[in-house]
Structures are given as structure tokens and as C-alpha cells.
Design a binder for these strands. Structure first.
Lengths: 338, 338
DNA sequence: TCAAAAGTGTTATCCTTACACCCATGT
DNA sequence: ACATGGGTGTAAGGATAACACTTTTGA
């Protein structure tokens, strides 16, 4: 019999490696019908010219909560007052942040998504808005299936699966081939726009994204050389972006967070374009309008906007009362495969 | 104009307070039709006799990932080989873990849920299984609306809202009264079994749970003395439990995680009882069976189980192929208000 | 025999999907 | 005139919710 104490073991020698905590934020806005994230340009030589996400230290003495700390340094450094903030995930893998042979402090990074209404102008303190599909181009299905999938990604992943299969003979509930089908919607499986992170991680495992090489994964194998699929970022920042996209794409369907990206009043078509930007897919116009209006998510302001390119459109605003009426109010859209 | 460097500020004096990272796990099993979590008994005097969740240090030198570290110390200390593990949230609030006047290291805890199939027996290294509704009794609606809601919780929260309202005159999209309605399903709003965390946090803010007093919240006000609603835990462990419940109650509806709690084969009624235990509400029997069978989630093993208390029942097993057939396979149940 | 659980069948209702079609504006 | 976006109507199909009812065991 062991004592209760054992569930709170004292640190052993060697356990007490220094740990630093950093906060990393995917700050999202939509302009020009495209989802933009705030990036910081490469500066240190170790970054290999790769952009990153804004990153700040956790300062427990100055801020009571993690979120307060995040809001504070984002405002100080970019001038942006972020509205909606949500914690994503805490990333602690060794080998992601570290360089080989590194014995420096271990960095644990806590990832966040923030949503913001912005005018593109303004001093961002060295930051810069970039279309998030620059980093994950296979996620944008608004103009049909991205060519990069059939031309680059699918053949390489099929080869990777084929070469991997014989080596992986232990029992697994889902085989690598199944994972490929599920993630990328192959062989009759439907594309699921929420699986952004799963797709990125599969590409990472297969050594097909630039970060995998930088992290010294055993990628120097048969399917080399590979192109960088999408623009790489430093450290694990692209993984955090993928996590943010997954979370947002799921969340707008059952929480009214999309309105954090909209102006006070908007046309239904503007709302649709914003949802489509986030989801990366087309929606059926008539049904979208009905779902959103009948769902009680918006109400007309009474105003009208001209110069929309067509007939003047009624303006709408978010209707906060839905929160009391429905348990999970969001843009319950079912994307249209076109 | 500020330089790009500013988005990576160097630590200032006073910023580099020592930070420790702990992993806290809500380890869940279901037996006797009740959800059980693994707790560790109070030992230190500072715990005020309160149980806690298993807790372990993060040891970056020994384990490459946070999750690997978690699995390892849970196995070492309780002998339990956990299967499904999911990260919940990283809690960093000051004042939750610290005692007043404390200048020791700041603790950031990363919360996890783990699901496990257990025989109740076995040496748990000082741990003990407890029904999770001991800690959050208002969450169990399987035998109708819990009496504690109308008798204790609702009147106290209404009083708290009434006293708070005049002091909170700034504009807020949702008023405290709205929050009360949304969280606890008052005044025509439906009870949403997924809002476990929101409910606990409202009670905490209102000073109605024991932890709020221990954390020196300004609770010494008019609605004192309060009973401890549910059994308190130490530090923020009850909040982590509430987070685990929220996540699980949501997740079983769109991912087949419920089968992590079931044996290899089971009757449909056993499956229903397990789902009900997690959701804390009744399900309509006939429709549950149909949803689960037609949804392709299970398949008959061909075997039959007698001594079920009635007619022998067909045995079923999980059908992993659903993962390829449907984008979000889970027990898509719509709880029945009875 | 009866309680308890296992199962089957059927209907009304709602929601989603997919069409078809008309309206108002700017160029 | 016509392209573009705004906006309405409706019918087919599927999923769900709520019923009623039969079957098979153990105590």
C-alpha cells in the first residue's frame, strides 16, 4: 500500500528544469472578404526569414489572469484593443520550440485566438496583416477545390501512407490510410472544414511542411525534396494558427462569435461573405438568409444601404436576445459543396 | 514608429517571477451508473479537509510532451493506464492557488480529462473514486430537477443579482440577471446541461461555494452565512472538474468518446445508462436505440446477455467505420425534460 | 404472475435542401 | 438592357419526438 502523499510527488533532481511561459495569439480580422491574421516579421537570423505570431511573456506579478496579461501586451505593442478572446491550447512539446542540442529553458506556450474589428490602417508596431490562407492554402475552397490538393498534397500523402504502412503493423483502430481519408476527404469521405489542425499535423508528420524539417524530424527520406506547402512560420506558430482556424470554424456554428468580426450594422450578404471567409467554403444564399433571420440571430435596423452593386440592402444588427432563447445560437450553416 | 522587436519584449525586472507548471487530471470512469472521478484525500492541514484531484509536476526533461508526462505519473502513482486523454484548459489565476500574502512561486495548472474503463477494485495509491455529483449536485437531473436548486441556489442567486444590479450600471450586452437565466434555465429559458462551468463560476462569483471564501473573495456580505453547495475541493480543482464535465457533455454528442467508458461489448441499455450518467438527464429509450443503431455507431456482436433483469439483450460493439462515414459521429441525443 | 427490460411500428411535425422566380439599383 | 445583388415562395425528403404495443426473461 502506498501513502496518499505519493499522488503529490516531490520534485526529483533533474525535474526542476527552468520553464518559461509564453502567450501566443492568433489575432483575426476579416477585411476584403478575407480572414487576416496579425503577424510579426522575421528579425532574428534563427527565424530563417519566417514570420511569426505576436508573442508575449506571462507576467504573473502584473496581471491577475493570463487573459488580462494577453490583452495588455497586445494593446501596448500593436495598439489593438482586442474584444473577444479565447484560450486555445497549451503547447509544450520539446523539439518544437527548441533547436537541436539546445539546453536552454523549456518554453511552454499558451495559444489564444482573438477576434477584432479593424480598419486596415494604423500603426501595428511592426506587425502586419496577412491572409491566413497564405499559410494554409489548401483550406480555401471558396473557388472550388484548391489545385494544390490534387497536384501536390494528395499524391505525396498517398505515397507516405504506402511507405509507412508496412512498418506500422501493430493494431490500430484507424490506419494511416484511414487518417488520410478522414482528414483530406478522399475516397468518398466528405471534406470536413473543421479538421484544419488534423490536416496540418498529418502534413507535419509526413514531413511535407517546412517546420518539420526545421524541427529535425526524420524527414530526409524518399519523398524528398518537398515544396513548402503554404508559407511556413516559426516555432509552432502555424500549428497555433491551424488550431485557431479549427476552433473558429466549429464555434461560429453554435455561438454568435461571427459578430465580433462585423460592424455594428451590416447587410446579410456581408455577413455571408464573412462566414464564408472563415469557413473557406460557399454557402447557399437563400438558405443562409433564412437560417440567420428565422434563427433570430439578427434583426433589421430599419436602415438601408445603397451602392451594394445591386438593389439596396436592408441593414441588420446582432440580436443578443437569442442567447436567452436558444441554447446554442450560431450560424448553423451546412456548407455547400459546389 | 516602433520596431518589430517590440512584439517580443525582453522581460523587465519584476517580470521573471518563478512559475511552476502542474498537471491536474480529472480521471473519469462510470460504474454503478454513476460518473466517478479519482480524488486524493486531504492530507496537509492547509487543505481544510478538502479532497483534490490528482496532481503532478511537469517534467520537461523526462517527457517530450505534456500528455506523455501526465500518463506516466498517473500510471506510477495510481496504477491506472488511462486511455483517452484530452487537454482542457490552462488555469493561471492569481488568488486561486495562492494563500493571502503568499509570495511563493506562481502555479499555472494545465487541466486534463481522462477516460478509463475500471473495475472499482485495485490499489489506487491513496486515491479514491467519488461520484462527481457529490461535488456538483445541481447537475444531476436524472431523478427530476434537483431540490437544491429551488430550495437553496435559485433564491440566493436572485438575491445576489438584485443586490448587484444597482452597482453595475455600465452597459453590458448581458446583464447579471440574464446570466442567471441563461446558466440556470430560469424564467422560461431551457436548462442546458453543457453549461456546467458557467454555473459553477456564477456560484463562485456570488460567493456561494466554499472555495470563494477560502480565496478571500469579498463574500462576507449580506447573503452570508451560506451553506457549501456541494462538497468543496482544494485550490481550483472543482473548477477543473466542472470544465471536464462541460467538455464531456458536449463532446459525446459529436465524437464517439463514450465508448472509452464502455466494455468491449455492451447492451444498448448499458450504453444509455452511461450516456445518462454523463449528461445527468434522462433519455427517451426507444429513440435512443434508434439514433445509436441507425447512426451506424454500433453493430451487434451476435452474442446475447442474460440476467439483465428482463428479456436477454443483444450485445453490441463500437463500429469504428462511422469515423469515415460521418463527419461528426457521436451520441446525438436530445435530452428529455421529464 | 408480475416486474423489468428488450424490442418493433407508426405518425405528426419540423428542419433542411433545392428549386424557381421576382425586385431594385447602377452602368 | 443587363449584370449584380436583394428578396420571397414552395415542395420534396429526411430526421426527430412522442406514442402505443409486443416479447422474453428472472424472481
Amino acid at each position: 500500500m502506498v501513502s496518499p502523499k505519493q499522488l503529490h510527488p516531490a520534485p526529483e533532481p533533474g525535474d526542476d528544469a527552468a520553464v518559461e511561459i509564453g502567450l501566443t495569439a492568433a489575432i483575426v480580422a476579416v477585411h476584403d472578404n478575407n480572414p487576416q491574421i496579425l503577424t510579426v516579421a522575421a528579425s532574428e537570423p534563427e527565424h530563417d526569414g519566417r514570420d511569426g505570431l505576436p508573442f508575449g511573456p506571462f507576467t504573473p506579478l502584473r496581471h491577475r489572469t493570463l487573459e488580462a496579461g494577453l490583452r495588455s501586451w497586445v494593446r501596448e505593442q500593436s495598439g489593438l484593443g482586442i474584444g473577444y478572446v479565447e484560450q486555445l491550447y497549451t503547447f509544450g512539446d520539446r523539439g518544437r520550440h527548441a533547436r537541436p542540442g539546445d539546453h536552454g529553458p523549456h518554453v511552454v506556450s499558451i495559444g489564444y485566438v482573438a477576434l477584432i474589428r479593424v480598419d486596415v490602417a494604423g500603426d501595428l508596431g511592426g506587425g502586419r496583416w496577412r491572409n491566413w490562407y497564405d499559410f494554409l492554402p489548401w483550406e480555401d475552397w471558396r473557388h472550388g477545390k484548391p489545385a494544390i490538393l490534387e497536384r501536390e498534397i494528395e499524391p505525396r500523402l498517398r505515397r507516405w501512407v504506402a511507405e509507412k504502412a508496412p512498418r506500422d503493423r501493430r493494431f490500430t483502430p484507424v490506419t494511416p490510410a484511414d487518417r488520410l481519408k478522414m482528414c483530406f476527404g478522399l475516397d468518398g469521405v466528405a471534406w470536413d472544414e473543421e479538421k484544419v489542425l488534423e490536416r496540418y499535423e498529418l502534413l507535419y508528420e509526413a514531413g511535407l511542411v517546412g517546420e518539420a524539417r526545421a524541427d529535425q524530424r526524420p524527414a530526409a527520406e524518399a519523398w524528398q525534396p518537398f515544396p513548402d506547402l503554404g508559407t511556413p512560420m516559426r516555432y509552432d506558430h502555424r500549428r497555433i494558427l491551424a488550431t485557431a482556424m479549427s476552433r473558429l470554424r466549429a464555434k461560429i456554428k453554435y455561438r454568435p462569435v461571427i459578430f465580433e468580426l462585423m460592424d455594428e450594422s451590416f447587410t446579410l450578404f456581408e455577413l455571408q461573405r464573412t462566414v464564408e471567409a472563415i469557413l473557406g467554403s460557399h454557402l447557399h444564399k437563400q438558405n443562409f438568409r433564412r437560417l440567420v433571420e428565422n434563427g433570430g440571430l439578427v434583426e433589421p435596423t430599419g436602415e438601408v444601404r445603397s451602392n451594394t452593386g445591386g438593389r439596396p440592402a436592408k441593414l441588420f444588427r446582432f440580436r443578443p436576445e437569442v442567447l436567452l432563447e436558444r441554447p446554442a445560437p450560431g450560424v448553423r450553416v451546412h456548407p455547400l459543396r459546389v
